[in-house]
Design a protein around this nucleic acid. Sequence first.
DNA 1: GGACGAAGTGAAACGTGTTCCTATTATGCC
DNA 2: GGCATAATAGGAACACGTTTCACTTCGTCC
Lengths: 199, 199
Amino acid sequence: MTSTNSLTADDLGSAAQRDRRKRILDATIALATRGGFDAVQMRAVAEQADVALGTLYRYFPSKIHLLVSALGREFEKAEAAGRGKPIPGDTPHERVMYVLGRTTRGLQGEPHLTEALTRAFMFADASVQNEIHHVGMLMTSMLTRAMQPGKTDLTEEDVAIAKVIGDVWLAALVGWVTGRTTSEDVTRQMDVAVRLLLR
Amino acid sequence: MTSTNSLTADDLGSAAQRDRRKRILDATIALATRGGFDAVQMRAVAEQADVALGTLYRYFPSKIHLLVSALGREFEKAEAAGRGKPIPGDTPHERVMYVLGRTTRGLQGEPHLTEALTRAFMFADASVQNEIHHVGMLMTSMLTRAMQPGKTDLTEEDVAIAKVIGDVWLAALVGWVTGRTTSEDVTRQMDVAVRLLLR
DNA sequence: GGACGAAGTGAAACGTGTTCCTATTATGCC
DNA sequence: GGCATAATAGGAACACGTTTCACTTCGTCC
């Protein structure tokens, strides 16, 4: 039934449309990587993706949709890369911290991109529900996998804990991208939270 | 030394200036209460506060500064109202949940205002550091007081826990103001987090 | 191959945050 | 009181997200 606001990857029939969508998201990532949230200007994205401004808005009804969709794609990419590999660590704490550390380092390697995506995520309103939910699910499943590798049946409690960790991580990330905390602060905050939550 | 970007309450000598500042913040709250983040338009704030647009920008260098400052003032007001009164509840969990519940209900009574202030808070960047820090301190101290009423010496662990709870609360609030979760969800999320963190 | 609707183009226009500039008014000092 | 300086008013101008519209191109069905 595909009742989303922005065109998702699935309901694009034509290959040309899939290609346009990809070009748009590529341009978004490129601009965000170079200059962050402010550099992702709709006219610039349209030009770099070689589509008209109106077309860009047909694919993504707002800058926020665009950026959150880009975040979803990046997250999927990262998740696919890590899938299958076992997560090192002897305890849930160690494994979760490993995953968080790896992801956090990845984000901190591209500070502008991270700033753009994080701020879009935090600014998104109800109209971006689907995209947000998608990202949230990926985040939660990444964390539950680290908590209980191999186990397929997760208790509600496990999921709740993962969500709390995700919340704290997000808040820490926001502090970092907005220049209020350092990357060490982020690691420290996460360590405290994970230690308290997974004991 | 007062090296803030926006004029804080302290370094306004003249009473007329203090009054202008107050009028501006009052107008901000009024507009936000009526129509949320989008309704707080700088021209409208200036008009309602009976100052010129340029003057508004002299007092608050951006819409975000304005809204976060307004949040700080409201938070202080709420904190002052609750100060002195003992917090009901026999355990830290009960007391923290009481404080969170009361504050959350207060916020949910003015959904537009809450939306405006929360989004501004989440969107703020490093230039709003001072105002953000101010609000963060108030939030943390409110929580630590509920955790350890009467105790004056808090361990680092206590503060860390309070910060984590604050993070989760913020994330839950963002979910609510952006229409992704219900108020019951917020309460449930907080209950889980507090139970896990204060055991 | 032609018709028709959907999708894309290109450009103008609008709304709102932000900046800038000049004239006017308030404030403090002599 | 008169003056120097800062603060404010008033309003134009700019930037960028978003909308709109007339026109063209593309895909599909007959």
